[in-house]
């Protein structure tokens, strides 16, 4: 459990981060979202003390981060940044093994861990271990960057706009990968982004920052249906709110018995996908399949009824 307790950062009398208090449960993804200058990155960097807080403190599993020397603290906390920050002169293996090397792990343990992580990120260890960052694609570089941050099995993984430099298609794959790996490893992740779509898509909880203050800290569904301030509503985008909400609800929640024409949707698809399929092909209902077997259908009326619950 990460407890952030009235943490404040002041530059020349201006509060970049103003008395933020929040608690992050172990094994969850928390997204900090805000516009540039909202203090979201400063907040993140105070957790591993890349910025020293002006006041307040952070406790990881009850222990204050101020009790450890900063560089020792950082070796326990994974850190991944935009533009990956890989060492251009080290091979992929040495990049991933950087923190274990700092922690003086034995060589064979490091190389086993490197291979394990590469496999986890769907990169063949034999093919990639000895390559240099410049020989990888943007998506691969980003995956190595996240693998490096996870290498020493840190208590917490901090990510600062990790997908910012990727193009939209690779970005959504990277987000899926992150979700999958987080669920597999049970890691605790705090991720900073300016992209509300990313926040809603990835976050178990979303923290919205504005002018250094934490204005709302809630689940994605709450953020969309009950924005706490006008700013949060703006970030969500009033017009798109219903669609965003639908994108959070899986079709399995409103599936009903019956048949429908045309191609089926998987049970994991969202109501937004179902709506799009209906509108695009002119149907009033689409079949839903689970493991290739049709289990029922979703109708336009059911989608409308579900959306109106929040209106």
């Amino acid at each position: 459990m990460i407890e952030i307790d009235r943490i404040t950062k002041t530059y020349d009398g201006v509060h970049a981060v103003d008395s933020v208090t929040m608690t992050v449960e172990t094994g969850t993804i928390t997204i900090i979202v805000g516009t540039s200058g909202s203090g979201k990155t400063t907040l993140l960097r105070m957790i591993n003390r890349l910025e020293e807080p002006s006041s307040g403190e952070v406790r990881i599993n009850g222990e204050s981060t101020l009790a450890t020397k900063p560089h020792l603290l950082r070796r326990r906390i994974g850190y991944a940044i935009q533009g990956h920050g890989l060492f251009p002169h080290h091979s992929v293996a040495r990049n991933i093994g950087a923190v274990p090397e700092l922690l003086n792990w034995p060589k064979d343990k490091i190389s086993a861990r490197v291979d394990e992580l590469l496999t986890l990120f769907s990169m063949d260890p034999v093919a990639f271990r000895d390559r240099y960052p410049a020989e990888l694609s943007g998506g691969q570089q980003q995956r190595v960057g996240v693998a490096r941050a996870l290498a020493s099995r840190p208590d917490l993984l901090l990510m600062d706009e990790p997908f910012g430099a990727l193009d939209p298609i690779i970005r959504s794959r990277a987000q899926d990968d992150l979700r999958r790996i987080q669920q597999r490893l049970g890691s605790t992740i705090m991720l900073v982004t300016h992209d509300m779509d990313e926040a809603i898509r990835l976050g178990d909880r979303v923290a919205v920052m504005d002018g250094g203050k934490l204005v709302q800290y809630a689940t994605p569904a709450e953020i969309i249906s009950q924005p706490a301030t006008g700013f949060v509503a703006d970030m969500v985008g009033d017009v798109e709110r219903p669609l965003r909400l639908l994108s959070l609800i899986p079709v399995s929640e409103v599936v009903e018995d019956g048949a429908a024409e045309g191609g089926a949707l998987p049970a994991g698809a969202s109501l937004r996908d179902a709506l799009a399929a209906c509108l695009w092909t002119g149907r009033t209902a689409v079949p839903v399949a689970h493991d290739d077997a049709v289990v029922g259908r979703v109708t336009l009326d059911a989608i409308r009824a579900r959306a109106e619950l929040h209106a």
Partner: peptide
């Protein structure tokens, strides 16, 4: 040295000497 690599080095807990 690329600024991002240095930021990462600091973030992973390297001392200035390292």
């Amino acid at each position: 040295a690329p600024p991002a690599a240095l930021e990462a080095a600091r973030g992973m807990g390297m001392t200035p000497r390292q």
